[in-house]
Design a protein around this nucleic acid. Structure first.
Ligand SMILES: [Mn+2]
Ligand SMILES: [Mn+2]
Ligand SMILES: [Mn+2]
Ligand SMILES: [Mn+2]
Lengths: 218, 218
DNA sequence: AGCTATTGTTAGAGTTGTCTAACAATATAT
DNA sequence: ATATATTGTTAGACAACTCTAACAATAGCT
């Protein structure tokens, strides 16, 4: 059984490992908002527990065991978010912070019940895939909208930022997962885009926004 | 905001204060399964925070503030138990341990949603009253079955032990809250009782059991 | 290649919450 | 009333997790 703190480190490691497997102490430190020396000593303890491989002055790397444990925490987080939205009438912008806490509840039965009541969902309310009980995740081929070219038509499938602030921004423009997006124009200078949303409205998005909108080409 | 540990101490203090207001360090220590010196130093910190009044070598006493804070934790615990039973298909013997964890979730909205979805329940699945948002609790006049005399007819209103083991004992005999109980005989030597349950079966209960069955005289 | 900025490490300290061992005060029993 | 048992306190230690200050290694830049 892992502590709350360990579980949060595991989750951060897994998220940051997405491209390339390697995670620098510095990135971890920034993501967790915990100072580097603290992260460094925790990584040594993680190496002891065989959750990562660690060599001085090199980025760390989750072991198979570490990946599995991280997936289990992510599974609990995403199941919780889905439960809060589907069964407790929460809005998608309200659930991340609560799930951040409930993901640490020690009760396999509790999460099994959630899973069953939800009908074994495959995605959370932000479009991220929910790992199965073995830690396997459905592969998705989403790319950020910022990587799309002019005139491309895509479907909004997920958001890579579940913060209340960002989701309120989308709510304010009635933008939902599943919406069809068409890139009308792209400003080379700052990466901002003019986008037609669901055939209805037209929006200007800064690059920061476009990086957070994960889409699938049609 | 209080820590998980502080909240657990508060809850234990409140439970033990039920008769007489005073709580000994020793009783707290036993209830929490934490050694006396640890409890002692925590009580000094509680006194600093004005949650209790503390004088050397005397039992401690919750302040008004301490009582209020304890009631809020108890409220969250009992709402959670009710939610688990009513909305997540748990049995009454499965919920206490999970509620012991969820009661510490930091999100007023989460518990408000629970309360609303449940229709503002007044009692938890074990018959204990749920404090309201101001910390007020419905007064109940339940007594343990062990205090009843022969031929008395009473209604089972609550259990004072929510452990899985005890509730399984009741499940095995199909005993439910609301059942009518009639005392057929009482053994002076060991305090055991012969009881007719809901006009159907007849059971022998040891004093240990009779102490845990909280009843209301008809 | 050599300077500089960034990243990583070591050392030392603080807080929270736990323990054991030893001692002190209070309560209980003869 | 005195001895004994119980309860409470002090002292000192330890694990987990955090920090700052100082230093070392690596990477990036002329
Ligand atoms: Mn989330
Ligand atoms: Mn978390
Ligand atoms: Mn309970
Ligand atoms: Mn608890």
């Amino acid at each position: 059984m892992y502590t709350v703190v360990e579980e949060n480190y595991l989750k951060a490691l897994s998220t940051l490992a997405n491209t390339g497997d390697e995670v620098s102490i510095n990135d971890l430190s920034k993501r967790l908002k915990i100072k580097m020396p603290t992260v460094n000593s925790m990584m040594k303890r993680f190496a002891e527990k065989e959750l990562i491989t660690y060599e001085s002055y090199k980025p760390v790397r989750l072991t198979a065991k570490g990946k599995k444990e991280a997936a289990m925490v992510i599974r609990k987080h995403r199941l919780t978010e889905m439960f809060l939205v589907e069964k407790m009438d929460f809005n998608w912008e309200e659930v991340h912070e609560i799930a951040e806490q409930i993901e640490h509840i020690k009760s396999p039965l509790f999460f099994e019940k959630m899973d069953a009541l939800l009908g074994y969902p495959k995605f959370d309310p932000h479009g991220s895939p929910i790992p199965d009980k073995n830690g396997n995740v459905i592969a998705t081929a989403y790319v950020p909208l910022s990587q799309c070219s002019v005139q491309e038509e895509v479907t909004l499938k997920a958001v890579s930022d579940s913060s209340e602030a960002f989701l309120r921004f989308l709510n304010g423009r009635s933008i939902l997962l599943g919406d069809q997006l068409r890139v009308l124009a792209k400003e080379q200078f700052d990466g901002s885009m003019q986008v037609e949303v669901a055939g209805k409205s037209t929006e200007m998005f800064s690059q920061l926004i476009c990086d957070k909108l994960m889409v699938q080409k049609i």
